[in-house]
């Protein structure tokens, strides 16, 4: 955190120096992060709230560390989505950190949950997996890492609310097939490897039906212990 504050301070100083040196004197774009991340908004919404495209996720309010990890993964090509890989390819770490901080600090309201297209039985199966897991198949409950309120934990574990079923299902599929990976130990890949396609459909559908909690903020680091090690969440 301190390191991040120092990096941000350094960035601000560098930027201030640059503004003096190169920027024209008048008629400049607003010197804000909002203006700098306009390239993100056609897909992710003005405040990172998401758009009508179900495959583009909400960014607002997710933990900054999680967002930063995703930006790094898209920049290096580890996480593959060519339009994102292309946009981020030549942006430096401190800037990606500032982008992550920006979207983490935005709090547009969570969307109303959409009615689900799946049966009650499927939803019940999704709820069971999400809240209790399936010990017999080595599947931990979603809530055991993503939090009892599914709002995630600082700095690296994302909340699962406000995402459409199609997006969650596509991501779980990508983890299962190994096209989405993260730092070792790659906890999500281990978990998703135990899921069947039916599990994925059920969990994604149930998560999308969850109403917004009173406090959608991710809980502070260390609020609860993780059931196993995760490369994206430092101890």
């Amino acid at each position: 955190m301190l390191a991040r504050a120092a990096a941000s301070a350094a960035l601000i100083v560098t930027l201030a120096a640059f503004d003096g040196a190169v920027a024209q004197t008048t008629n400049q774009p607003p010197d804000t992060m909002a203006a700098r991340v306009e390239a993100c908004t056609p897909c992710h919404g003005n405040k990172g709230e998401g758009t009508s495209d179900v495959y583009f996720p909400r960014l607002a309010g997710k933990p900054a560390g999680y967002l930063y990890n995703q930006l790094l993964a898209f920049r290096s090509g580890r996480r593959k989505y060519p339009p994102m890989n292309y946009l981020l390819e030549f942006l430096p770490d401190p800037y990606l950190e500032a982008m992550a901080d920006y979207f983490a600090s935005e709090h547009p309201p969570l969307p109303q949950p959409a009615p689900s297209g799946v049966s009650k039985d499927v939803l019940a199966q999704g709820e069971l997996l999400a809240t209790s897991g399936d010990a017999g198949r080595n599947i931990p409950a979603c809530v055991s890492c993503h939090g009892p309120g599914l709002t995630g934990m600082q700095p690296g574990i994302p909340g699962l609310l406000g995402l459409r079923a199609a997006y969650v299902s596509a991501q779980l599929g990508a983890w299962r097939y190994g096209t989405r990976t993260a730092k070792s130990p790659d906890c999500m890949q281990l978990v998703a490897g135990h899921l069947t396609e039916a599990d994925v459909t059920a969990v994604a559908a149930w998560l999308a039906t969850r109403p917004a909690p009173a406090d959608p903020a991710p809980v502070p680091k260390g609020t609860y212990a993780l059931p196993f090690g995760c490369g994206s969440q430092p101890n």
Partner: peptide, 10 residues
């Protein structure tokens, strides 16, 4: 010289 460039939306 330009550590936080402005981007063009797709």
């Amino acid at each position: 010289g330009n550590p936080m460039p402005y981007g063009m939306p797709p």
